[in-house]
């Protein structure tokens, strides 16, 4: 059992102990409160599958660690900044996203197809997964809560401008809005427009401006944005 798994159990125990103030049994023994129903179901699944040799607990821990600490929108921001400063890279990125993204060290083990959608003065791209929550993990990490909500999933297609307005993005009427519905096999990353007034910024400084929301298409990158992804 790795340190992380002990942490998980300890954390569960600590949470349980808090609830226990109200749940001590009649003998006054300080036993642990029972975790939530979903937590118990996951423990049942995991312990049975581990016993059968179907999953390796260390591999589960490594995967969780990757998603909690190594994968996130900063990866996508570096891809976007590179595309802004390096026209040849941008060309490769638009022609075949996965290999170009892998050049920066970000790759998927699932083999799903990646497409980069370029925004321009007259075209704005918006990404959704109407059926569940397919999302370009290697470049954006796991999706935010709103991306998974029934409201976003249904409304992004029906009323994309209304959705974007709620995010504070008002697009002129002459800008064409294209909505892209992700699938298990096809994920999208929006390449936002490089904001004006950033000609003197370094690639790193540019990457710092690029937000997760801009790479999903519910925001634009501005010279003052960044830091929230």
């Amino acid at each position: 059992m790795s340190t992380r798994r002990r942490d998980f159990l300890a954390a569960t125990g600590a949470a349980a102990a808090e609830g226990n103030l109200h749940a001590q049994d009649s003998h006054g023994h300080d036993h642990q409160a029972v975790p939530s129903d979903p937590a118990l179901r996951v423990k049942a699944l995991e312990s049975l599958l581990v016993e059968k040799g179907l999953v390796d607990p260390a591999a589960l821990d490594a995967l969780i660690d990757t998603f909690e600490h190594k994968v996130g929108p900063r990866n996508g921001a570096r891809v976007v900044a590179r595309a802004w400063v390096d026209p040849a890279y941008k060309q490769r990125l638009l022609a075949g996203a996965a290999p170009a993204i892998a050049e920066l060290g970000y790759s998927s083990q699932h083999g799903e197809h990646m497409v980069v959608l370029e925004n321009g003065p007259k075209v704005h791209n918006l990404v959704v997964c109407t059926l569940c929550s397919c999302y370009p993990w290697p470049v954006l990490g796991l999706p935010p809560v709103w991306y998974k909500s029934a409201a976003y999933r249904s409304r992004a297609v029906i009323d994309p401008r209304g959705v974007m307005r709620e995010f504070g993005l008002e697009l002129p009427e002459d800008v064409e809005v294209r909505v892209w519905d992700s699938t298990a096999e096809l994920r999208y990353l929006v390449l936002p427009e490089r904001p004006a007034g950033t000609a003197n910024l370094s690639e790193d400084q540019l990457a710092a401006l690029v937000t997760r929301d801009a790479m999903v298409g519910v925001a634009k990158v501005t010279a003052a944005s960044g830091g929230q992804a």
Binding site: T12, A39, V55, L60, D61, I64
Partner: peptide, 24 residues
Amino acid sequence: AEPWQAQAFALAVKLSEQGHFTWK
């Protein structure tokens, strides 16, 4: 939000990687 969510996430990804079901 809670540790069980991470465990459930990882279980699905790993079982799929091992071919028990496709990601589709």
